[in-house]
């Protein structure tokens, strides 16, 4: 029993960060902090969600996010079903809505969806009777990633407000970037985005961020350096000329990092491309890299979300 038990969450679904307010975010982070402590004890398993059904509906390949959601549900005692598209009827031509209606008829309590198209979770949420959690939609949002990043920062830095956070790399295609920009702005951090002009949306400044094309400028005095994965499959020659040029200009190494604050924290949503966007030397330095802790906080944050969204009377 904790003091957070009686809290009601103001949203029925977790579709994006953009529609949350600071109160909502703090509510999730506070509960997640509690779960983070609990999962470090030998007695990890709870029965809070006993009898509830969680379906993980993944239309895109995922290992870490799906495992994290699965583990979060299991630790709370839910029955967790993984549906990956490879062996589902979607391959046979079923539409997203038909899939949703089919699953809905099985009366799940929460649906976690990852989909390659932006807005797919929103469409699903209109059609089903249970809570929907966005596990990443296209280039739109990945809200639980931003929440776990926020929790990691908070634990390391004690706050979010006033921190200078540099988000670096492929902003254009990144749902992680969009969710983080939204969350950090709501929580009063100073957000910078750093990347080549070809990987930064043309009207990025309207997102409420400072835009930089040089690491030497964008990383100056940063508290947090958040590296994004370069989607190498879509990079050769079209967005950036080559991996060696990208690493030379935007890959994080000790030299570029020296521009940031001495106690700057390095984050990466994974999976990392070593030697593309980040140097191994930095990624593996536990004093400056929070990359493992991000994974750990991922489970805690997802437990908190599952908990809040399945509570009786959730609006």
């Amino acid at each position: 029993m904790t003091s957070t038990d009686s809290i009601r969450f103001a949203h029925r679904h977790l579709l994006d960060i953009a529609r949350l307010n600071a109160g909502d975010i703090n509510q999730i982070l506070t509960l997640a902090e509690h779960y983070a402590e609990q999962t470090r004890t030998p007695d990890k398993k709870q029965d809070l969600l006993r009898g509830k059904t969680q379906i993980n509906l993944f239309f895109e390949n995922s290992t870490r996010t799906r495992t994290s959601f699965e583990l979060a549900g299991m630790r709370l005692g839910a029955d967790v079903i993984n549906m990956s598209v490879g062996n589902s009827s979607v391959k046979k031509g079923e539409t997203l809505i038909d899939t949703a209606m089919t699953l809905n008829a099985m009366h799940p309590d929460v649906l976690v969806i990852r989909h390659g198209d932006s807005g797919a979770p929103h469409l699903l949420a209109q059609k089903v009777d249970c809570a929907v959690i966005n596990g990443g939609d296209g280039s739109h949002e990945h809200p639980t990633q931003a929440l776990l990043d926020a929790l990691t920062i908070k634990r390391r830095k004690g706050r979010l407000e006033g921190l200078i956070v540099a988000i670096c790399g492929d902003i254009q295609h990144s749902r992680v970037a969009r969710s983080n920009i939204a969350l950090l702005n709501i929580m009063g951090a100073r957000v910078r985005i750093v990347g080549p002009t070809t990987l930064i949306p043309s009207n990025a400044a309207k997102l409420g961020v400072e835009v930089y094309n040089k690491m030497s400028e964008g990383l100056k005095d940063a508290d947090i350096v958040m590296m994004l994965r370069l989607q190498t499959e879509r990079m050769q020659g079209s967005f950036v000329p080559s991996i060696r040029e990208y690493f030379h200009l935007f890959g994080l190494n000790a030299e570029k990092l020296s521009i940031a604050k001495p106690d700057a924290l390095i984050m990466h949503p994974g999976p990392m491309n070593r030697g593309v966007e980040i140097d191994s030397e930095i990624a593996d330095d536990l004093n400056i890299s929070a990359i493992s802790e991000q994974v750990e906080m991922g489970v805690a944050v997802r437990m908190a979300c599952l908990d809040l969204l399945t509570r009786e009377g959730a609006s």
């Binding site: 020659g237 000329p241 060696r244 040029e245 030379h248």
Partner: peptide, 15 residues
Amino acid sequence: LTKGLQGEEMAEIGL
């Protein structure tokens, strides 16, 4: 501007 002047992929303009 493009690799091998082939008009297909950007050359390493930064380098």
